[in-house]
Amino acid sequence: MQEKVEAQNILSMNSVEVLYDNVILAIKGVSVQVPKGEMIALLGSNGAGKSTTLKAISGLLKAERGRISRGEITFQGTDITEAPAQKRVEMGICHVIEGRRVFEHLTPDENLTAAAPRGMSRSTLNAEKDKIYAYFPRLVERKNSQAGYLSGGEQQMLAIGRALVTQPKLLMLDEPSLGLAPFLVEEIFGILQKINKDEGLSVLLVEQNALAALEIVSQGYLIENGRVVMHGTAEALKSNSDIQEFYLGGGETDFHNVKHYSRRKRWLS
């Protein structure tokens, strides 16, 4: 029974604890499962530990002097808790980091080239690029201008496209909607959904914009203060009264904020 569950999950993260600088406990025993081919959201407010969770999975923690002090992460049944970031990308985990972070002084086309795995043939790379340009037609006309001058939406598309060049099996996105107009968020999320459907790509999405995220994912985890405090299907989360109040913006008056605070605190303990 246990093995069957493992086989269905492309990623399994069990009670992972992350320390920064050996002292700061950033996440305190987070368990997250990503079933193969599904889209999963990590929701929560600023500083809840969502980004740290993604970095623990992609191995980018090390660049910020963080480390996993407890728990384990398995990807397709292989323990990757200690694997270097580069190895994880080779295995098929790609992390689109927060804030777009395209290579500003390169052209979009060069941005895609830069992400090509070692040993990828020129023809494979060109085929990958064509596929990415087909998903993001906006990038085609800008492909030879400087990436730093692209609009925010185009940069986010390029960042996702750049990740796709690595041929991931699990794509992780950190706040792709940040600072983008609602119609762009809708466009990008639509494309993500299409890629997920067309290629069976598993997606782990970190979002503060819970409303938009819950429209496209099948399940969501709510993280508060370094812990998972709620987990359920998108429908269940959408209809949960706490989620509605705190994350989907039910129309509350100021008077209720006092109450919010005490209810929030109960989650933390």
Binding site: S58, C94, E110, A114, A115, T166
Partner: peptide
């Protein structure tokens, strides 16, 4: 060349380079 482009990418952003598997 591809290697040259990767070097320029590294100069632009270490973190983003790591994130796409550039050594």
């Amino acid at each position: 060349t591809r290697t040259g482009i990767k070097l320029r990418a590294i100069a632009d952003d270490y973190m983003a380079s790591w994130s796409v598997g550039i050594s």
